[in-house]
């Protein structure tokens, strides 16, 4: 474990020095994300001109939820996104060969080796927006709920990464993976909507096998509506289940890769 943390410290150091080298790209990406944040805030302001409640939440509560998913998104962008973009390419091109001969988990390497330094700055902005939305709530939040909320958001990002990875795993068998990102990003929009606006089997799907509504909605509900054990357990169970599922499929994928490789 300590070895992996040390390896990760190297990844961070290398990625930061690499990001700083391409100055224009560095600032442009920060600017792009700021535009995205502005659009999200504007979107919620526009909706609440039409309705007083959205999925059971008021304007102030919905803004906290929004702040939550901006943080989830920023963590995911910082830690995982660049790596997920490169993953199908690495598998297609056979770069995986070198990872397979190293005494270290190939999944760890391919998931985390590129740390997005510019997104770390955006994470700062996202946390700032979240703090602003929490502070403008009419009633001061409960400390336990707030702590649980803040603790759940990084796990929401882990779930976001897990879903992205799951959408990419077919590349082991398909040979080409460029379309797979599209599937993930179409679904990922559901993360940006409160879970209660969905009903029936779609909702059941979005909190179980396609758990996009868990990533930010469940942490926000724990914060806004108090810590309910079923929600916390549900959240933990889905993350654990996907973790085990990914390990299983990854190993099958490696076997397929090593069978097809020449």
């Amino acid at each position: 474990m300590i070895r992996y943390l040390r390896l990760y410290a190297h990844f961070m150091r290398f990625s930061i020095s690499k990001a700083l080298e391409f100055r224009l790209d560095f600032f442009f990406r920060i600017f792009m994300d700021l535009v995205y944040y502005g659009i999200q805030i504007g979107f919620y302001q526009a909706i609440f001109m039409q309705t007083p409640l959205l999925g059971g939440w008021s304007r102030d509560q919905s803004l906290v939820f929004m702040g939550g998913y901006l943080v989830v998104d920023a963590i995911s962008m910082t830690l995982f996104s660049n790596n997920m973009w490169m993953l199908p390419v690495a598998i297609n091109r056979g770069d995986l060969d070198y990872y397979l001969v190293r005494p270290v988990s190939s999944l760890f390497f391919l998931s985390l080796r590129d740390f997005a330094a510019n997104s770390l700055i955006n994470l700062g902005f996202a946390v700032g927006i979240l703090a602003w939305t929490v502070l403008r709530l009419p009633e001061p939040p409960h400390a336990v709920s707030l702590l649980l909320f803040l603790a759940m958001l990084p796990f929401g990002a882990v779930l976001h990464y897990q879903m992205h990875l799951v959408s990419l795993l077919p590349v082991f068998w398909m040979g080409s993976g460029s379309n797979l990102h599209g599937i993930f990003y179409s679904f990922a929009r559901c993360m940006e909507r409160p879970d209660r606006i969905f009903t029936g089997w779609i909702r059941r799907l979005l909190v179980s096998v396609l758990p996009f509504c868990l990533m930010a909605s469940f942490p926000a509900r724990v914060f806004l509506e108090g810590p309910h054990w079923p929600i916390l357990l549900h959240f933990a169970a889905v993350i654990t289940a996907f973790f085990l599922f990914i390990i299983f499929i990854w190993n099958r994928g490696l076997r397929a890769y090593s069978s097809a490789s020449s």
Binding site: R3, R6, L7, H10, R13, F14, S17, K18, E21, G94, D95, D97, Y98, V101, R102, P103, V104
Partner: peptide, 25 residues
């Protein structure tokens, strides 16, 4: 394993940094 047609060191990093990573690995 060395494959003349495939690089293992990271393109954007100095070799010295890549070696430190390998030391850790």
């Amino acid at each position: 394993l060395i494959m003349g047609q495939k690089a293992q060191l990271w393109w954007d990093l100095p070799a010295g940094d890549g070696f430190l990573l390998l030391r850790e690995i």
